[in-house]
Write a protein that binds this DNA or RNA. Structure first.
Lengths: 205, 205
DNA sequence: CTCCGACTAGATAGATCGCTCTAGCGAGGA
DNA sequence: TCCTCGCTAGAGCGATCTATCTAGTCGGAG
């Protein structure tokens, strides 16, 4: 009993959604990959595919932000943390043959115009990422409004780079995004808070 | 006979792909929306859904870049052009109930790990956007390598903002992306080339 | 005129879709 | 012991999926 059937279903569904999206993932495919009986799926998620989707989105969103926090907290300062996070995302992308990028982006685009419950779940995840990231930035002395805009910008470049990188099977876009995110954070922080290793552009993007 | 059956099929498929993605769009749905007979679909695209997809991706990518060029060329300078483009994208998003964003992003994420021909088509469109945008930037005196990185950054923030904006049904992320793109272009341009209206941050992001 | 190829038209095959249903297993409580 | 109930197990339903197939329409070339 390493993991419960329910958790196994959620885990493999998250994987499948990330790579093939919501409509591209079948219920049969899920139970097969999770080694779970079909009946269990509808026992745990009586609302069907939509309920399962909402749960997976919330869970994946939470886990991904915790990964971000872990990496940032392990770094000596915020700028280094952001750098490490983008570098890690690029490494994962290469190691997984450009399959594992954002856990919810594919689903978010697919369902934005076709399922309100799913759309709302993705919106809540993004908003939570924004608020929590902005909070961390603000804790370094950046005014709230600017902190929020900075958080949005970081997520913007990350998500956009994931699209380009997966399509081109190259991390070039992610590298550019990382540099831009680092520069933006550096520029926003009060001078004292940023030890500023060399390498990143000090001004401009 | 305003448009040929083939063009009508391509047009409505582009619309459907943009909103519901590749797997989320059915062949029946396409012929119904295009008011075309089913047989015509396989007459014009014997390779089936995949061939149709490749054609739609190329065509949509080309048309979208032409839109970008039209807007930029109509503006007095590059910075204004970029500003107008992001503002236009935000307006379209609001007017279409957050349905019409990037014509290929949804498909790009869906097919990246499941169809090589489709993945390649999206990669070629993105690369063409990068090269042509970089060319325009370089024409203003920016070194080639920096111009390419700037082009990638602009596409990064645009695509990322489209995800967030469609999910949250708000253009906040797109506004942030626009400001960042403007600031990046302004910072990269030699001082002479940018008339620099006020409003955008002069340095930092 | 005839003939031919481009295109229209839609029925239908075969697989897969999400989902429902009934049956049974097996551990814990009465 | 027996019953209950959370969960397993998978057959199967109707709908829908992509794709194929045959038949028919229509305009232009010879």
């Amino acid at each position: 009993m390493p993991t419960s059937t329910r958790d196994r279903i959620l885990d493999v569904t998250a994987d499948l959604f990330r790579q093939h999206g919501f409509t591209g993932t079948g219920m049969k495919q899920i139970v097969t990959a999770a080694n779970a009986p079909f009946g269990s799926l509808y026992h745990f998620f009586p609302g069907g595919k939509e309920e399962l989707g909402v749960e997976v989105i919330r869970r994946s969103g939470e886990m991904y932000f915790e990964l971000f926090e872990t990496i940032v907290d392990a770094a000596p300062d915020l700028v280094s943390g952001v750098r490490d996070f983008f570098a890690g995302a690029a490494a994962v992308l290469r190691e997984t043959d450009y399959a594992d990028a954002c856990p919810i982006a594919t689903v978010a685009l697919e369902v934005a115009s076709s399922s309100e419950p799913l759309r709302q779940a993705t919106a809540e995840v993004f908003e939570s990422w924004i608020i929590r990231t902005a909070g961390r930035v603000a804790a370094h002395g950046v005014p709230n409004e600017e902190a929020r805009r900075l958080a949005i910008l970081i997520i913007n470049v990350l998500e956009g780079a994931f699209i380009l990188s997966r399509a081109s099977r190259s991390t070039e876009a992610l590298d550019v995004a990382g540099d831009a995110a680092i520069a933006a954070v550096q520029a926003a922080l009060p001078a004292s808070s940023s030890p500023s290793r060399d390498g990143a552009r000090p001004e401009g993007w």
